[in-house]
Amino acid sequence: MNTSETFSRWDLFTETFFNQRLIDEYSGAIAKGILITCEIAVLVVFTGIALGLLLAMLRSYRFLPINVFISCFVDILRSLPPLVLILLAYFGLPSIGFSMSGFLVLWLVLSLILAAFAEEIFWAGILSIRRGQWEAARSTGLGHTQTIVYVIIPQAIRMTVAPLTNRTIAITKNTALGTVIGVGEILNQASTAQSFSGNATPLMMGAIAYIVLFIPVVAIGRWIETRFAWRRI
């Protein structure tokens, strides 16, 4: 094997996946994508978890019609692929007069999905608190809402942290699905740049951006899992 050939193969590889000119040209676009991905991710985490917590608290009143509604909501959102909901909301809703930007659709759909999973996790946490805690609180005159806010939820939170973190990470990664409806997040910027440049470098940049963004999150999730050592077994 001669060295010049190896050299040229290596050259071809860097040329295709790590092309310096394209890195310079598209790093702005990728940076913009990172910003949008982060924006949606943060919004989804907040609204999704807040809504999930609210639903779990509502469920604790054990009012049948509301609980049937919550159960169905949770089951449906756990059963449907996120992409189905995204396409349905983005292409379907305008025909009945609700036109939403891709950004809004992605935020809404992912929040609802996270809310469904979060509700299940919070509800399991609430159920795990012994009945005596409810009784002690109620016997001192605290109402249902006060009991759940001051006594039950603070205890339930501990055992929801690990599963909730993992689920939140999984759902946040779905921001990449935004590319299908033209949300300018990382993947979208990267594939657009790729088709313009006819080179795999932008795609590699996008992949690296995701890894840089999510590896720390996954590592934190792993740390939380051991810190709050809690298994469902």
Partner: peptide, 23 residues
């Protein structure tokens, strides 16, 4: 494991489908 948990599946898929042909 953590590497593949950090990459969104769609990113992985698109990389394999439209990135690898360049190689």
């Amino acid at each position: 494991i953590d590497f593949f948990r950090a990459v969104p599946p769609l990113v992985l898929l698109i990389f394999i489908y439209s990135g690898l042909p360049f190689a």
